[in-house]
Amino acid sequence: MSLHKSINLPFQEYSFSFAPFMKVRKTLLYSLLFLIAALQCLFIGGIIYEQQQHFYVLPFIILFIFLFASYFHSYIREYHIQYDSWQSGIWIFGGATMVWILRHHLYLDAVLATAITGVLAGLLPLIFRDNKYIAALPAAIYCGAFIAMTNIQKGYVFVLLASCFCFFAYILAKTIMNGIGGKLGTLAFIGVVLAYLLYYIVEWI
C-alpha cells in the first residue's frame, strides 16, 4: 500500500493504491449523497403531505419533480475522492459554540448571533492574508453556526452531537455541491437531524 500526503494545504489528498480503501471512501461519499437527497426529498415531501388538501400543492409537486431530476443531472458522475482536512472541519464546533453562547448567555437572536459569527469568521482571511489554512475557516465556522440556530431545546450536548455529525459530513463533502448556495446549511441540517434521531432512539430505548 502506498500513500502520498500533500502537506500545508487546507485539504489533504490521499491516493491509496489499496483498492478496498478506495471502495470504502467511495461508499461513504455516495452514502452522504444519498442522505442529502433523502433529506431534501423528505423536506419537500413534508410540504406536499401537509398541503395535499390545497390547490397550491401543485407548484410543490413540480418542484419535487425538478429536484428529483437534479439528482440524475448532478449526482450521476465520477467523483474525485478528496476529503477536507479535520484541522479546518474542527472549527464547526467553534462556530456552533460561539452562536450557542451568543444566544443563551447574551440572549441574542439566532440570526443576529449567526451573522456576527459569520462576519468575524469572514474577516479572518482579510486579517491573515495569504494563509491557506485561515482561508478555509470561514466556511467551517459558518456551517457550525447554523447548527446552533436550532430551536430544539436539548442543551449544549445536542449542539455538540450535531456538530460531530456535521463535522464528518463536512469532511466527506469536499467534492460535493461545490459552488451551490445552501451547501453549508444542508450539512448543518444533516448534523441536526442525525443528532435528533439519536436522541429519539436513546429516549425510546
Binding site: 433529506l39 431534501q40 423536506f43 419537500i44 413534508g46 410540504i47 403531505y49 401537509e50 398541503q51 397550491y56 407548484p59 410543490f60 418542484l63 425538478f66 429536484l67 431530476a69 437534479s70 443531472h73 448532478s74 447554523f146 447548527i147 446552533a148 440556530m149 436550532t150 430551536n151 430544539i152 450535531a162 455541491m177 451551490i180 448556495g181 445552501g182 451547501k183 453549508l184 446549511g185 444542508t186 450539512l187 448543518a188 441540517f189 444533516i190 448534523g191 441536526v192 437531524v193 435528533y196
Partner: peptide, 30 residues
C-alpha cells in the same frame, strides 16, 4: 415559496433555511 409553506415537522431545525436554499438553487440549475 418553500419558506411560506415549510413543513411543521422541521420547524426549528438548524440548517433548514440552508437546505431550502440548496433545493431552490438545484432546481433552478437543473
Amino acid at each position: 415559496l418553500i419558506y411560506f409553506k415549510s413543513s411543521q415537522f422541521f420547524q426549528g431545525y438548524g440548517g433548514a433555511l440552508g437546505l431550502s436554499a440548496c433545493i431552490s438553487v438545484l432546481i433552478v440549475i437543473t
